[in-house]
């Protein structure tokens, strides 16, 4: 949706333009809530994180230096606020040690022939076909599966896939918001997508078997 350029946004906020503040609030808060939910355990906590983020933005807008886009700046404040909140809740492993867990994911290697077989690294059995993408992948039950798969991801994978695929950020924005390298971003995104595809595969398998 067409927000004006950043310098216009910042100038408007600094002069107390309420319409501009409301526009930002209504344009970004949904995505911010979804991202905050990666770090905290309840919707209420996520709402508090987003509220505290906006309060921090209000307090800091005069000092904004334009070294990143306004959106990236707001989202970085959100991440910091959410991480502090997460530490307090200690719901999951701390961010810094979450990487080990990330490292264990990926597509199950047992689906491919071993190195000493005649066809090493090839599918033992092709993935089963899915129903036509436009139809049933978007059906409500499949969406529930996707939401459940997201909720089970390690926090960094969840944050990356939420920003990239759900909210439509670029990889550059994601790296800047989460303060991670491009290659790290790609690995986390790939594992997260692999997990979500796997969840849908299991779901469609179940549907097929019970049909």
């Amino acid at each position: 949706m067409g927000l004006p350029p950043d310098d216009v946004v910042v100038a408007a906020l600094r002069t107390g333009d309420e319409a501009m503040f409301v526009t930002l609030l209504d344009t970004w808060s949904r995505g911010m809530l979804r991202l905050a939910r990666s770090y905290v355990s309840t919707n209420d906590s996520a709402e508090e994180v987003v509220q505290d983020t906006w309060l921090a933005v209000i307090g800091a807008i005069d000092g904004f230096e334009g070294r990143s886009s306004v959106k990236t700046w707001v989202y970085r404040i959100l991440i910091n606020t959410a991480k502090k909140r997460q530490l307090r809740e200690s719901r999951t492993v701390p961010w810094s040690s979450a990487f080990e867990r990330d490292g264990e994911q990926g597509l199950d290697g047992s689906r491919f022939h071993d190195a000493d077989s005649p066809s090493p690294g090839q599918w033992k059995q092709f993935p089963a076909a899915w129903p036509a993408p436009e139809g049933e992948i978007l059906a409500s039950e499949a969406r529930i599966q996707i939401a459940a798969a997201l909720a089970e991801l390690p926090v960094r994978q969840r944050a990356v896939i939420t920003l990239r695929d759900v909210e439509g950020c670029t990889s550059e924005e994601v790296c800047e918001i989460l303060d991670i390298s491009q290659s790290n971003q790609r690995v986390l995104l790939h594992r997260a997508r692999t997990a979500v595809r796997g969840r849908l595969e299991d779901y469609f398998d179940t549907v097929r078997r019970s049909a």
């Binding site: 969406r143 695929d165 759900v166 979500v196 595809r197």
Partner: peptide, 12 residues
């Protein structure tokens, strides 16, 4: 299927 998954994520 991978592409369809990415597409479905964007349509939540």
């Amino acid at each position: 299927q991978f592409r369809a998954t990415v597409g479905a994520l964007g349509e939540l």
